[in-house]
């Protein structure tokens, strides 16, 4: 029984590498095609309606040289505070809703209502409650993202195999160890997936809140569009999209590192 486990390992690794490189070739081809199409389209419709790829890159340079781009940094800081709040509130609430039927019955209607309600419609009301400052923007980001944390965490708890809990009991695990050694690790992949989805929502919430109260990145976007500075406008949108994609990719990585046993929840589209 001491034979080397899976002698074909090297071959498997090589196979994975091959698929990886193929994936990147495909991606580069698609991106290249999009950029070329973008360039042609931009040149044909003219700068009043659209900016071509090269113009957008010029706009990006202007944003960086003028320092306007750094407003994004401030926006992101505020976004993170709302996002962290969503994590700090969402995870325990999700755990409780998953574990306790009573808790779930009380909270579920509200959670579902919030899920189907249009968050945008709530914004004027939130302005009345919180003003237009830091609190307002944090709350919007929080409300945009918290449900994803709650619902995923709850689904994680409810998906735990009851047989595993019984197994832990058979080894005389006390209740708190069942929580710590079965419920938490069993839910972790779902919590991380929830945090990843929530991050995208937080970014949306950030922009929408700032558009509403005309501040920071939102105000900049609005101004650029109004003055038809489409090159810088598109450059800024592009930067936001890329940051969002990178952050999501980073969270996928965290998921794979922290919960290597649950790859299916941590593999982007495969």
């Amino acid at each position: 029984m001491s034979a080397p486990p899976f002698p074909a390992r090297g071959r498997i690794a090589a196979g994975t590498r091959k698929t990886l490189s193929r994936k990147w070739v495909q991606r580069l081809l698609v991106w290249g095609a999009i950029i070329i199409a973008w360039e042609i389209f931009g040149r044909r419709v003219g700068p009043f309606f659209f900016a071509s790829f090269t113009q957008t890159m010029g706009g990006l340079r202007e944003l960086v040289v003028s320092g306007d781009i750094w407003v994004l940094g401030e926006s992101i800081q505020q976004m993170l505070s709302g996002y962290l709040l969503a994590a700090v509130v969402g995870i325990p609430v999700g755990l409780l809703m998953g574990a306790s039927r009573k808790f779930r019955h009380v909270l579920e209607p509200y959670v579902n209502l919030m899920f189907v309600a249009s968050m945008e419609a709530l914004l004027p009301f939130l302005i009345i409650l919180f003003g237009v400052g830091f609190q307002f923007r944090t709350m919007v980001v929080f409300l945009f993202s918290v449900l994803y944390v709650v619902l995923n965490t709850q689904a994680g708890v409810r998906n735990i195999d009851s047989q595993l809990i019984e197994t832990a009991r058979s080894f005389r695990a006390p209740a708190w160890r069942i929580f710590k050694d079965v419920m938490l690790p069993g839910t972790l992949p779902y919590i991380l997936a929830g945090l990843r989805l929530a991050l995208g929502m937080a970014l949306q919430g950030m922009i929408i809140a700032e558009l509403w109260v005309q501040t920071q990145t939102g105000a900049l976007l609005f101004g650029l569009a109004e003055f038809r500075a489409l090159d810088r406008f598109l450059a800024l949108v592009l930067v936001i999209m890329i940051l969002g994609a990178l952050a999501t990719e980073a969270l996928f990585w965290v998921q794979r590192k922290a919960a290597p046993w649950a790859r299916d929840l941590a593999t982007p589209g495969r």
Binding site: L164, T167, S170, R172, A259
Partner: peptide, 15 residues
């Protein structure tokens, strides 16, 4: 403590 169980489905902790 005197007893320990082995299950029909292995019931190993996946993590």
């Amino acid at each position: 403590v005197e007893s320990a169980m082995v299950f029909q489905h292995h019931n190993l902790f996946p993590w």
